[in-house]
């Protein structure tokens, strides 16, 4: 079995167990209905709701593959929502240029992170921490700390609530982004460059690879995807909420990537794994919301505890040290 497939076994098994659990507890979970020109049902709902984390995790996978991390994606989401709200409502700009400018701004935010990491050589955690803190401040500054409703823009509302191919349009957007990323990294040398830069930057540089350019690119891409996720979120709630948009989502995105089998230390990365990881996280949330034990629903607070346990179990399963301990070989040190 090729390594990429073997790496996907655990995440796929986890997703299957979650789905099976739902099927046993709630037969309705897998039923799909056709209403108002689109398919509806829990499965569609999970896919629809998973799109922001899924988009973030695509960019995050590439960033983590270069042995970095992007903590600012949640703040960039909030910024994207605020920028589009200000342009649409205060400036009165049409939808298309608004989307374009918002995406350009997100791209610039990503490039800023990339510059700090690649040109100044600042550690990724700190470099992106700056934008994580300041970015949300800028988003709140733009909207004056208020929730700005975005109404009367059907084009903008379509982004988060529209239907395409009988499914929520968000699914198509996420799929397109995933395909774009997959083609870019697997049908060009880019994927190899990213893995090489993450595995051993020094050797890569001596081999003639422009490691700085690779790093700059992945952070820029991460910013762009965060911008798309921010637009979808703002469109979904038809408002820009600078305080809550994307809050804690950077952590979910990192989790999705790690659950998907990509190591935080960089090198080999698994895009499909990250997508499955994002779906696992969303399915988990939906499961906890829907599960009833003895007619009582589980309080939403348990979500965090279950998430913590899943993270730990998945990480331990993938840890080489645990395998060594179990097979009796022990660990050095």
């Amino acid at each position: 079995m090729p390594e990429s497939l073997r790496k996907l076994t655990w995440p796929l098994a986890a997703l299957a167990v979650l789905l099976l659990f739902n099927a046993l507890l709630n037969p309705e979970f897998f039923s799909l209905h056709f209403a108002e020109g689109r398919l509806t049902g829990s499965l569609v709902d999970v896919l629809d709701r998973a799109t922001p984390v899924l988009l973030l995790s695509l960019g995050m996978t590439l960033v983590i593959a270069t042995a970095g991390v992007d903590l600012s994606v949640g703040a960039v989401m909030a910024m994207a929502g605020s920028i589009s709200a200000v342009l649409l409502t205060d400036v009165g700009m049409p939808v298309l240029p608004t989307l374009l400018i918002t995406l350009l701004a997100s791209l610039a935010a990503g490039a800023w992170n990339g510059l700090l990491v690649s040109m100044l050589g600042i550690q990724p955690i700190v470099a992106t921490l700056i934008l994580m803190v300041a970015g949300r401040g800028i988003a709140q500054l733009l909207t004056d700390g208020q929730i700005i409703p975005i109404e009367g823009h059907p084009g903008f509302a379509y982004l988060g609530g529209g239907t395409l191919f009988f499914l929520p349009v968000t699914i198509t957007i996420a799929l397109a982004a995933a395909l774009f990323t997959a083609i870019a990294v697997r049908y060009t040398a880019l994927g190899l460059f990213i893995e090489s830069a993450g595995e051993n930057p020094t050797a890569s540089r001596y081999a003639g690879l422009n490691v700085r350019a690779v790093r700059l690119l992945v952070y820029t891409l991460s910013g762009l995807f965060a911008g798309v996720a921010g637009l979808i979120y703002a469109s979904d709630i038809t408002a820009a909420d600078a305080n809550n948009a994307g809050l804690y989502l950077e952590l979910d995105a990192i989790l999705a990537v790690v659950i998907g089998g990509t190591a935080l230390s960089g090198g080999r990365f698994f895009l499909a794994g990250s997508i499955i990881g994002a779906l696992i996280i969303q399915t988990l949330g939906t499961t906890i919301l829907m599960t009833q034990i003895g007619g009582q629903s589980i309080p939403a607070e348990w979500n965090l505890i279950v998430k913590a346990i899943v993270v730990l179990v998945v990480c331990l399963l993938q840890s080489a040290a645990l395998r060594q301990i179990l097979t009796g070989k022990g660990v050095r040190g």
């Binding site: 955690i125 607070e301 965090l304 913590a308 993270v311 840890s319 080489a320 040290a321």
Partner: peptide
């Protein structure tokens, strides 16, 4: 230490766990 997992991830899980227990 034992499982050689990155501190970032382990303490992230601890954060979810502690916050979750506090809420529960």
């Amino acid at each position: 230490r034992w499982f050689r997992l990155p501190p970032f991830l382990v303490t992230l899980a601890a954060m979810f766990l502690a916050r979750g227990i506090a809420l529960v």
